[in-house]
Design a protein around this nucleic acid. Sequence first.
DNA 1: AAGGCTCGGCGT
DNA 2: CGCCGAGCCTTG
Length: 668
Amino acid sequence: MTSNSLVRPVLHYVCLDMLVDVVFPLRLSPLTYRVPEGLPHDITGRIVKAPLMHGSRFGLAVDVRMGPGDESIKIKELLDVHDTFASATHLKFLKWLSEYYLSPAGLALKSSFFEEAVSQQTDRRKSKKVVDSTFAGSLPEISGMISPAVVSGILNRVKACSYSALVYHAQDLESEYATLFEMLRQLPADLRGIVVLVPETGFIKKAATFLEQIFGQRLVVLHSKLGKNERAESIKKIISGNSDVILGTRSAMLAPLPHASFIVVIEEQNRSYKGEEGLRYNARDLAVMRAFIDKSCVLLSSICPSIETDFNIRKGKYVQLAKISLQSSEKRPRIKIVTFRTKKQSELSLSSEVINEAGNLLQKKERVLFLVGRKGYSLIRCEDCGHIESCGNCSIPMIFYKSIGMLKCHHCGHERRSSESCGECGSQRIRPFSAGTERVMEDVREALKTPALLVQKARISSPPAKEFNSNNPGLSDFAPFVIGTSLAKRKVGVENKFSAAVLMNIDLLLAQPDFRAYEHAFQEIIEVSQMVKREGSLLIQTKSPGSKVLKCMKHYDFETFADLELSQRKDLDYPPYSRLVLFSVFGKAGGTDLTHLWRVVRSVRDDAVSIFGPVEVPSASKAYGQCHHILLKSRDSRKLHEMAKTLLSGLECDKRIKVVVDVDPLKI
DNA sequence: AAGGCTCGGCGT
DNA sequence: CGCCGAGCCTTG
């Protein structure tokens, strides 16, 4: 402090300036500007123009306050003030978003369609009305599937206009959609600000057709597959207030809606709601937080709720609507657990029971779906030393593609020609094991004398079967046997469900090294059961039919399964009893300064937080050859968050490494 | 994002 | 010795 400030304190007091924090859609924290005379003073939440570096940019004014104008840093002046982008509650939401996911405010803003909003600011020329092909297609049929108790339960909560989180555990997808649409139809006409989230773009078309019937021009769609102009158009409609009903995928939860009165998350357990790059938010969690901030109602619906959601119901944080008994399974496909142990590698990948059932259905011209869970032909194992052919970079098993005689690494994309002998001991006795789609195709052809249709890639939003084409087959095309990985599972229409589905290797799913493996396997069963006719059957091939999980699956017994799962999670202190933050530290191959890494990790110790790692993991990044994981786990989410923040700033001191933080990771 | 700045490789 | 380009750094 110089004597200057001591002799002129009063002057300082009088000459307080109006200051504003501005967030730019860049990897950058808020910057402070002075608001000059002549500009409006009510600027929080508005788009402003401000000098930045050598030029000027649009940013969002997030906080206005009075403050001393002549500190050591030179404060530049705001240039211009434009329209409102974010309401007060939306601002709170954005702030929470960047803090919770440990991301610079600017990145959260960038993910929140700010640039689209600004493009409207500069470019006011009318873009031609996109007459939406999105709204083509027929209405989904509604029969007697609607649950009136659920509909009225939701309506009562929505009308209460206070925060509440509801869960609708539906019996099947058809009744889930039918009930939700009926409920949306019955909403008060003056209720403004509705968000409906679906897990993937493939679900949008049908939902849009339906919602447009109810809301007309109030509806906008918002998802990642929209073009730049279409997206800007949707954002413009939302900001102007012309449209206040948003249907979209995860990113739609970040739309600049002034107030959300009601948010629906369809299939809330779906992992697509969690981002795997950029700002790694979980749209389902955002929905709950947005509803909390806006003091409104959020509805999580699902045919198989996540364990987190079930836990929150048990704790009383969420309210479950008209609990249905999942064990009343008359209307569901029968689930058969088929014991199947391969003794010899040469044996078929299909059990005789599966072959019989499929053969019978084939005679009746009925269709069967085989879900395999692995692409390619198989893995390769040495019968002498037990070595499994693996990728040199990732040290994970490589997939054998018989048709081209290649081994491929699914993780890094590395390919090499398959060899005649074991890479470890040189033995010639190497054999395929653990069947993939190619192998199952071969076996189906051999055992049932009928070729099967291999669904290679999932078609997400293609029009119905009118463009039948054997080069580009889809699930709706007619073929007696369809084979695919679980990627191929899609919502199939009521009219083209399968008579039976076979889950070939549930054991693979159950053996995943992830504490959510059982949960995912259970969800997989429920999802697959939706592709089978009610009177059809679902066959699950397994080596260990006695497992408790499979017993629950057989009876669609979600409650018992959740009991089991929760008690295990509690014993091991896993979510939802604790929370996780996963750090991925990337460095040039061999160049990661491990001593620095360890020093930072050691410096942040806290008894309430467990730290695992750093451990080296295969790096999928091309730019960085090395990746280390550090996992933080704690029951105390505040302390966990604090430590994650400290650790992040500690790690970021080393400029040679790149750090990616994943709060509440789904895959660990 | 984008202009400035540093540092290292390479050419004369 | 000097020029050029890649990548890093900063933004009030």
